[in-house]
Nucleic acid binder design. Sequence first.
DNA 1: CCTATTCTGGGTAGCGCTACCATATTTGGG
DNA 2: CCCAAATATGGTAGCGCTACCCAGAATAGG
Lengths: 344, 344
Amino acid sequence: MKPRARRGGGRPTIADVAKLAGVGAITVSRALREPERVSESLRQQIQQAVDELGYVPDPNARALASARAEVFGVLVPSLTNNVFAEVVRGIYDSLSDSSFRVQLGNTHYSGLEEERLLQVFLSQRPAALIVSGIDQTATARKLLETAGCPVVQIMETAPDPIDMMVGFSHFEGGRTAVNHMIEAGYRKIGFLGARMDPRSQRRLAGYRAAMEAAGLFDPRLVTTTPVPSSVTLGRDLFRDALAKMPSLDGVFCNNDDIALGVLFECHRASIAVPQAIGISGFNDLDMMQVAFPSVTSVRTPRYEIGRQAVLMARAAIAGSRPENRVADLGFELMRRESTNRSRN
Amino acid sequence: MKPRARRGGGRPTIADVAKLAGVGAITVSRALREPERVSESLRQQIQQAVDELGYVPDPNARALASARAEVFGVLVPSLTNNVFAEVVRGIYDSLSDSSFRVQLGNTHYSGLEEERLLQVFLSQRPAALIVSGIDQTATARKLLETAGCPVVQIMETAPDPIDMMVGFSHFEGGRTAVNHMIEAGYRKIGFLGARMDPRSQRRLAGYRAAMEAAGLFDPRLVTTTPVPSSVTLGRDLFRDALAKMPSLDGVFCNNDDIALGVLFECHRASIAVPQAIGISGFNDLDMMQVAFPSVTSVRTPRYEIGRQAVLMARAAIAGSRPENRVADLGFELMRRESTNRSRN
DNA sequence: CCTATTCTGGGTAGCGCTACCATATTTGGG
DNA sequence: CCCAAATATGGTAGCGCTACCCAGAATAGG
């Protein structure tokens, strides 16, 4: 019975390397994964054979045999939102020195979609999972708890991590920005919010806390929409807010896109910023410091969140979970011209 | 000799489903992949067993056995660049109704990094590859030619696709925008370019062609930098350009971030737009139409490029490569206030 | 010098799935 | 009513790799 032709298309396998190097297949496997367990001389022989054949291990076979794929599953609610794009970049950069791959999933801000993607990801037995936010559904939470791999929740902080957590307090971010505006002399400060995902909700809560503490809260100051955020939407929300409350003298925006929309609308309508209207954004995208006038915003550690999430996960994979399972990376209020009423 | 405990952690396998449904394992496999080849009654039995056990196929085992992973390898030069973020979103959305996964790689605009990632991706035997641009290294091109799967080059068009191609002409985009500015009465039109990747180079070539055709080209009008693009950089480039050539009366920008930086700097320096300076951007991000004044830009079909790339690849996987291997999705010049000199 | 311990390397037996081939079973034409 | 072709299901043998166990060599200790 003649042996069947190789299915795989003739790529060299570990057996080919082993034969060429004159060692057992398992030794090649070891030399590649735990070089310190193989003697120097054999290691060199094997490396030479690998180079000569151009051998690249098959990650699928590897995953099957070891019941563990070298994959980081990453779930984010949006791919185009600049905030998550930077988080993802931080994740990729921190993984580029390893052989881990990234499996990215877009939940579209949907808990059900998150559950579905989690199922898909888990079928691969990922090395770690990074998920956005802390508002997983009960089902998703259970899946994560029994995932059998490190799990990092990112973007927020809370006292009850599933496993580990990296982020900052959106509530405090909102409160800090609004307190600053109150101190700067603004009184009728509106809240403009798009999308209103859980993190936006908590920024709103921070806004409300600050306003109530100053005795300034009025529900008519709050203008929100479930529509995804955009600069255009910022303009529209501002128009709505102004129509509802013409005495508005400031806005705290959900994010920088909204703030930019407000700024442009002020230019168009000849509303003086910061004199007639103060503006504060959230996230501090690059453009905020260049805008005219420059726009106050809450700088958030997006790239760093991605980086830290990977570091924590890799440490956990290596067997050492950090002492503090919740890392609060904080934020920084960038005070700029758009809320500087005193300059004249 | 007692059988060793199952390695995989007790997840149900195809054999478990087969036993429960009272059929052969291969029939379960078929029912899942080619339902029409299995009788209605068995199909139902099997589906019931699948549901009861919560069976999810192991993609690694599947990939190993079939020598083909259900993965789209996608290589982009940047993850945070809004342009590629939208392309990636188009790819993800067009794949969400399938069981294909996406393997995303960030080449950081480096040909060598692209080669490396290509090696990594190919080791998984992907179902298709989507790569950015047409300037692959010779090595990368060879890898793609012998990849054994559909390959789609995106973002640009050229007559010699490796396999398939979806994009538009950056040269024509640049030329069209600049011609419009010339028609609008601008004469000393500068080119501001960041990063200067191959696509930016071709926009510059389009700029140059338009300027030369009108007898307006002057090398001192061109200001570029290899530094990655940002709004801040747009401001700086504009300042440089103006210092070099104070009689500048317009700028065609590499992309919208640069254009926005110019716009803000004009506000800050009280330079009238569009009277003293005309501005044109590239890509037409949402903010351009909201800006004050609104900014002329070349709208590019980013999301659609991602979508079409997936459609073409999926068709090729199904065995029907399109007649035209190169799809030119075009662009649209959005004429706006920033180049409308006649309005006053 | 012998036994206990480490260290290095290899053999065997799968991981969970599908390609390939073989074996019913059905259909239909003569 | 028989045989060929089509249809429906199953069995076998891997895919390429690693977990687990084992053997022999080297080292150490008494």
